[in-house]
Amino acid sequence: MNDYDSEYCFISYKSTESRPILSADAETAALAYTSEALPLSSLPLKFKNGAANDKNKHIFSEEPPEILFHGSDIAVKAETFKQLTSIEIPNLALQPAIYIDQNNVHHGNYWFLTFTNKLDCWDRNKSLYAPEPLTGFNDIRYEVISYHLDKATLDSMPLTERRLFKMGATTEGWLLVHNSIASLFKKTGVELVPIKDFGITFFP
């Protein structure tokens, strides 16, 4: 019997003042880059360090980390990109991206992970969440505090279709990774949080 809560981790960030935060420039912000595979004419995506300003830009490293966060979404450098392209991951579009750091240096070796569909696989009977869904989206989303995964949903899918996915029907849409490929995301500044530790424990 599969214990899915022990097989998956959330891909999250380590909180620190010196962590760059991706902020889309005006041209990129006008695109559906978080949910659609964009035509080549729209690429590359462009992001700045939204956490930097004239007073604090000295605290950020000149060499940006392997993985950068944009909310719960991520952009990865070429090494991780190559590893991901060798794995068939449904609904994943890897889109080229440029990161413009706090010193206006352009880093063109990033790829943004866009999931064109989400996987709603959290257990409504065991998870802790606000019972009323939030409106204003094109789908139904709940504010989930702590998670348990739905066994029936995951049992119906082969592992090859659920090794990496974006959680559906939630306000945050965190990325989940199966233990079989979790090592790809063990990078500086990244926190791989087990299902049982996520929520109240991770965000007190």
Rank of each mutant, 00 (worst) to 15 (best):
M1E: 06
D3V: 02
D5W: 01
E7S: 14
E7I: 04
I11K: 07
I11P: 10
I11Y: 05
K14P: 11
T16V: 03
P20Y: 01
I21S: 08
S23V: 12
A24S: 08
A24G: 04
T28C: 04
A30Y: 01
L31D: 05
L31I: 06
Y33H: 11
T34Q: 12
S35Q: 10
A37H: 08
L40K: 11
S42H: 14
S42G: 09
P44I: 03
K46D: 05
K46W: 03
K46I: 12
N49E: 01
N49D: 06
D54L: 10
K55C: 05
N56Q: 12
H58R: 13
I59M: 14
I59Q: 15
F60Q: 10
S61C: 14
E62I: 10
E62C: 06
E63H: 02
P65K: 03
E66I: 03
L68T: 00
L68N: 03
F69D: 04
S72Y: 08
S72I: 08
I74Y: 02
I74K: 10
K77Y: 03
K77V: 03
A78N: 08
A78M: 03
E79N: 13
E79D: 15
T80M: 06
K82N: 01
Q83S: 12
L84Q: 08
I87V: 14
E88C: 00
I89P: 02
P90N: 04
L92P: 15
A93Y: 06
I100K: 13
N103M: 09
G108D: 07
Y110H: 06
W111D: 00
L113N: 05
L113W: 06
L113G: 01
F115G: 07
F115N: 12
T116S: 09
T116K: 00
T116M: 06
T116E: 10
N117C: 04
N117D: 13
L119K: 04
D120R: 08
D120F: 05
C121K: 02
W122A: 05
K126H: 09
S127E: 09
S127C: 03
Y129S: 07
Y129P: 15
E132I: 12
E132A: 09
P133V: 10
N138A: 01
R141C: 13
Y142N: 11
Y142V: 11
E143A: 01
V144E: 12
S146R: 01
S146E: 14
S146T: 15
H148R: 15
K151I: 01
A152L: 07
D155H: 11
D155F: 02
S156P: 09
P158G: 12
P158Y: 08
R162N: 13
R163M: 10
F165W: 09
K166R: 15
M167Q: 15
M167A: 08
M167V: 12
T171D: 07
T171I: 05
E172Y: 00
L175D: 04
N179W: 05
I181T: 11
F185K: 12
F185L: 06
K187P: 07
K187F: 00
L192H: 11
L192G: 05
P194S: 04
F198H: 13
F202R: 09
F203P: 05
P204M: 01
